[in-house]
Design a protein around this nucleic acid. Structure first.
Lengths: 250, 250
DNA sequence: GGAGCTTGCGAACACTGTACGCCTCTCGTA
DNA sequence: TACGAGAGGCGTACAGTGTTCGCAAGCTCC
């Protein structure tokens, strides 16, 4: 191979490492992958780097999963596991429970912003944690009085809103992290470009100038909660009026 | 370099191709990239393959854009260009206009399902088509009586819903395309796994069995429209209250 | 005619996911 | 206690990736 390899005989070559540790397992691999993603972002996740961090070879993970895509599915479900599932008596105040769940999904995604694009790639999965979450919501809503079809709609719509909204927040965080600058620095630097780009778009320009200096995290959570209330209002107005869709509601 | 290279002299070597065509340009590169993505999916997009399809070298695109990431930004904005922007007199019936725009966004994404994860990676961009779309919506809503802040919220919430909802539809389409099977085949094949996986999740199981055989496209569009109505209801009920203005509109 | 700029491209580099085969260790059974 | 089977781990290799670099060709303007 490379010319600077040290020549070793059978006697000098170190013996293969004894199998003292619990070795590798899905759990430790996935946990380390999440840590790597948190620290260095999605682009930095390669099988080789992951192997190195695990004191393992580049292909040692393939005994525990079939491919990198599978690893990503496992990682996604691992993160699903951090989201708060409505408890058994949550149906007493379904609005609060749904809101808490939505906020939990949001903050989990923001804690791991790299996951946003992965959610779009993986789609619906059969992972245990993702199922636990959906199951918990469905159970809670049915107990609160929705029928199955309604509850199904509610869950879809709520998650679509939460994930859609949070994805754009996460994209912003990711790009800030990649640029390595503070929000203020970045805004100041890009501002001329924005000013020029919005020349022909007066409404957009007013929107951006109104938010000059970026949006604080309080504003962002207010934004999120505003839309969430709105979605939950829609949810509430459907409760109790049977399962014949919302067609005649106005 | 390689040993089977044919030795050529100045005389036998073909002359460099004359520059007869309009050569390469951002537009043709991006258009070809979209075509490639439509035909073969996101994983098949590589600079080399794209170059080949353009009868160009592997690195010939780098005169027109700085990186593959930039190409993707351009591609995303190109697709934004296919979405329907509310016209000048759309404010007369803002509900219909917003609904039409939402449906247009949805069907554009479903026409190019590979774009869903990219939307999560790119985030808010300064591309002209994405700006035209947002500007059109903001203008329409302001003319309909919302103030700037309200309109901003509305646009965010509506797009979050539409993109979130459509992303999961797109993920389903993408995976079907990858597997190369019909929806029925796929459902039949995966059904046992679903049955086993949902063993401990009775609500989920009931949901899946209720949809056995998959969900037809009519059901999907109904689903989408149902949530859309709901979001637009919330929109309507806010119109007029909040930051005073437009109380008598609607 | 020639300088300078832009476009195109072949080669090379560092890196990717993963198939394959070999080695080692563990464990169940004889 | 011996042995065979299986599983986990890993070095190597292969095909492919994005991108840099330097060179060649053509265009434009002095």
């Amino acid at each position: 191979m490379s010319e600077n390899q040290v020549i070793q005989s059978v006697w000098t070559r170190p013996r293969r490492q004894k199998r003292e540790q619990p070795a590798l397992s899905r759990e430790v691999i996935v946990a380390e992958a999440v840590r790597l993603l948190d620290e260095e972002g999605a682009a930095a996740l390669s099988m080789r780097r992951l192997g190195t961090r695990l004191n393992a070879g580049a292909t040692s993970m393939y005994s525990h999963m079939a491919s990198k895509d599978e690893l990503i599915e496992l990682v996604v479900d691992h993160v699903y596991g951090e989201m708060e599932v409505p408890g058994p008596d949550a149906a007493k105040d379904w609005r609060a429970a749904a809101s808490a769940c939505a906020h939990s999904v949001r903050s989990t995604i923001l804690r791991h912003p790299w996951i946003a694009p992965m959610l779009g790639e993986v789609g619906v999965s059969l992972g245990p944690n993702s199922m636990r979450l959906t199951e918990g919501m469905l159970a809670m809503l049915e107990e609160a009085g929705f029928d199955l079809e309604q509850a199904d709609h509610v869950v879809r719509i709520l998650f679509a809103y939460v994930i859609g909204m949070t994805t754009s927040e996460a994209a912003w965080l990711t790009m800030l992290a990649r640029s390595g600058q503070s929000q203020e620095d970045w805004t100041r630097k890009v501002w001329p470009a924005v000013e020029q780009a919005t020349r022909d778009y007066p409404h957009l320009r007013r929107r951006y100038t109104a938010q000059e200096g970026g949006r604080s995290s309080e504003v962002l959570v207010d934004n999120f909660g505003y839309g969430l209330d709105w979605v939950l209002d829609g949810l509430g107005s459907r409760l109790g009026q049977g399962s014949r869709k919302g067609a005649e509601v106005g």
